[in-house]
Design a protein around this nucleic acid. Structure first.
Lengths: 142, 142
DNA sequence: AGAAAATATTAGAATTGTTCTAATATTTCA
DNA sequence: TGAAATATTAGAACAATTCTAATATTTTCT
C-alpha cells in the first residue's frame, strides 16, 4: 500500500514531537482528525468515521488516543453536554456555540467575545481556562 | 410529627405555584434544596443528604424531582463535568467558577462578568443562554 | 538483523451515572 | 368515600466510558 509521503511525514512528526509512537492506528486517527480542518468529534463518532474509512481500530483505542492527544495538547475537550464528550481539533483560545437541538458545535474565535473583567478567583486558586458556551436553538419559523 | 408552619407553607406554595403536587418527598427535597441558600447538588449527593436527614426517598425520585424542578424553573442545570450533573438553586442570571480538583462550583454574579459583544449566531438560531465557566485549580504553593 | 524490553491494541467485562418499567402507593376531587 | 390522576419505588436496562489481561507491534540493544 502506498501513501502520500508529505501528509504521512507531517502526521508522523506531529506524533513524534508529542512523544507518541506512530502506530498504524494513531497515524490513521491523526489524519482523520487533522486533515480536514477544525472539527468536533465524539469517540463513537470518530470510531464510526474510522470504520467507514476502512481503518481497523477498536473503540478502546479511539478513547485512548483521544485522551493521549488531549494530554499532549493536540486536542481539547469541550464539555457542553453531559451525555457525551466532544474533542476539538482547534486548540487555540476560542469559544463555542452549541446547538442543543442536534448536539453540534460551532467555534467562536477568541476575539469575537470580549470578557471585560473577571472577578477574583476563589482563595488559593488560579484560572486555567475560561469557557464560554453560547447555547442556541433553532428559531421558531415566522 | 410537628413542623415549622412558616417554612412548611412557603415550600408548599412554591410547589403549588409550579403545578407540582406537594408530596412528602418533594416537600422534603424542596426544603433541603432551598432552605440553606444557594447550592449546587448532584443527584447522588442530594440523595445522600436526604438519607442522612432521615428522609426516605428513592434515587429515582431524586432524579425525577430534580428534573421536574428544573422544568418549572426552580433549578437550573449546570454542565461542567461530563461525569456528573449539577443542579443549581440559583436560577438568576449568573456564571460559575469550577474547581476541577474537587469538583465544586462557586457562583459568579452576572454583573461580575461583562460580555462585551457576541458574534452572530449560526443561521436560523437564537441564543438561549450564555454560560461562562471559569475553570480554576489550586495554585501551587510558593 | 535478531532478541529482549517497552509500549500499544484489543475484545470483552466491569463500572458509573442515569433512565426506564411496571407494580404499588398516595393524592386529589367530585 | 371512591374513582381517577399522579407519584414513588426497586430493580432492570442503558449508554458512555474505563478497565483487564492477553496478544501484537514497535523500539532498542548488541
Amino acid at each position: 500500500m502506498v501513501h502520500d509521503n508529505r501528509a504521512f511525514s507531517e502526521v508522523l512528526d506531529r506524533l513524534r514531537e508529542a512523544g507518541l509512537r506512530p502506530t498504524r492506528q494513531r497515524m490513521a486517527l491523526c489524519k482523520l482528525l487533522f486533515e480536514k480542518g477544525d472539527c468536533h468529534v465524539s469517540a463513537e463518532n470518530l470510531h464510526a468515521e474510522a470504520k467507514s474509512a476502512g481503518i481497523k481500530v477498536s473503540l478502546a483505542t479511539v478513547y485512548n488516543t483521544l485522551h493521549q492527544f488531549t494530554d499532549v495538547g493536540l486536542l481539547r475537550q469541550v464539555v457542553v453536554d453531559n451525555s457525551r464528550s466532544y474533542f476539538d481539533t482547534n486548540v487555540t483560545d476560542h469559544h463555542h456555540f452549541f446547538v442543543e437541538a442536534d448536539g453540534h458545535l460551532v467555534d467562536i474565535p477568541a476575539e469575537a467575545i470580549d470578557i471585560g473583567k473577571l472577578p477574583k478567583t476563589p482563595p488559593g486558586t488560579n484560572v486555567d481556562r475560561v469557557d464560554v458556551i453560547v447555547r442556541v436553538s433553532p428559531s421558531r419559523r415566522k
